[in-house]
Design a protein around this nucleic acid. Structure first.
Lengths: 190, 190
DNA sequence: TATATTAATTGATATAGGTCAATGGAATTC
DNA sequence: GAATTCCATTGACCTATATCAATTAATATA
């Protein structure tokens, strides 16, 4: 659990009591490779913090095509946020790409933490603001760059993910075909 | 200023004192059509709330191509968040598409509000979480839909913007050419 | 180690959408 | 109300990238 505590302390000044309250609400989860943490159509009760491992969040469209909207590795939060915060059933699959260990917090517990220890309002505000900015960058890259530029940007922004995830999944995340990414990578070598 | 107060009260329960403190930090700004609220390369001191009007946030790439990352109308917050929160100079232009009235808050004032009235940590946390979810949806649409689907989704999600912004700017926002959007729209009519 | 599975690459072809250029209509501006 | 600027549309052509199919390479499993 220390990695989450450190993560919190990097963003806010939380007292020991606040951290203890938060810790008391967390549930430890292990999930093995290829298993699903979430599937669409179900209620979304939790948000997750990655202690160890690697996962992907993706949407499956009507034609059965997968669209990866997020990878998560150590020290990332992930979840189906729309369903978690706004209710209703989830839209996304979350699947482990490696054997992983997570911490989970359920909605009511999180609200209780917010009420009792407002420093966690700040923690999540800062966290989500950073995520918002990163997403905005991703959108901008999608608008302004071709495959080559988007791939280079991805490798620079997420070197730790680039080395752990197969290329065809990175292509999917970038919104291009695996074949196209392969050809672009070849050109980059020469 | 009432529209901002109402906006706050829709998301959180803020006391009159909290609202008054917040209001005391806000500065009223008028900006006329085609004028710039922000330009790249400058320090970003403020975030803005739209009382009236319509604006766009865009990036100008090396080739001189514009890429619109956000439209904002009444009751939207906008700004160059990366530069505002993380320092450094801005990357984006923000330009008024109509004569507009805004409220502005500067960084230090906002931090003071956060310190004194944590309910605003919550307000901005909820706000940015919603924006994050909307952006995630935009990314997903970009990955999974062709021009037609993206356009329909945009019109459904932002009917108030669709009617106020010229089509070629909507095309730009969607990441397609104006010509292509025009052809897609024609097919939709028949 | 052999086998099966998964991932990356390559070639050939098809297509959505980009780009360029021209036109006509709409909306501002003088 | 005339003139000018702005915007939407259309046609012709071009390009990046998707798709399909096959092969090779790498990785996992028995």
């Amino acid at each position: 659990m220390d990695s989450l505590k450190n993560h919190v302390l990097k963003l806010v000044q939380a007292s020991d009591e606040a951290l203890d309250l938060f810790a008391s609400k967390l549930q430890r989860i292990a999930i093995s490779k290829k298993r699903f943490l979430l599937q669409p159509g179900t209620q979304v009760q939790h948000e997750y913090f990655v202690l160890k491992g690697c996962l992907k969040t993706y949407y499956l469209d009507k034609k059965g095509n997968e669209h990866i909207i997020q990878f998560a590795i150590e020290n990332w939060w992930l979840g189906d946020f729309d369903a978690f915060y706004n209710g209703g059933t989830g839209k996304f699959f979350i699947e482990a790409l490696e054997d992983s260990e997570l911490l989970a917090i359920d909605y009511n517990s999180l609200q209780e933490v917010f009420e009792k220890e407002p420093v966690f309002e700040r923690y999540f505000r800062i966290l989500i603001t950073g995520a918002f900015i990163a997403q905005r960058r991703r959108i901008l890259d999608g608008l302004s760059l071709k495959t080559k530029g988007r791939y280079l940007q991805f490798c620079e922004a997420y070197p730790n993910i680039e080395t752990r995830v197969p290329n065809y999944q990175i292509a999917n995340y970038l919104g291009v075909s695996a074949e196209n990414l392969s050809r672009v990578r070849r050109k980059l070598k020469s």
